[in-house]
């Protein structure tokens, strides 16, 4: 059963709306951080991997095409 009389009542949370919603906002932020940060980590690792590969190919004389390794 819905614990409130109306939707406005629900958002107001008695006199405690600001406290409750701020706390849940922080919880959402922490969940989003934990969910997203591994993907950012992964992107960085893939970028590093590609840079490493380019460097390795650049040092092989057979495939040197005049491109300066970054």
């Amino acid at each position: 059963m819905f614990a409130f009389d109306s939707l406005a009542d629900f958002f107001a949370m008695g006199r405690h709306g600001l406290y409750v919603w701020t706390a849940y906002g922080f919880a959402a932020a922490v969940v989003i951080y934990n969910q997203l940060s591994p993907y950012l980590m992964q992107r960085r690792m893939v970028a590093d991997h590609r840079r490493r590969q380019r460097r390795e190919q650049g040092t092989q004389p057979a495939s040197s095409s005049g491109v300066t390794p970054s």
Partner: peptide, 16 residues
């Protein structure tokens, strides 16, 4: 947040 009953002493802040 929405369906648990309100707490007698603390009101809605207990939902934290």
């Amino acid at each position: 947040l929405a369906f648990a009953p309100i707490e007698r002493l603390q009101g809605n802040s207990y939902r934290i």
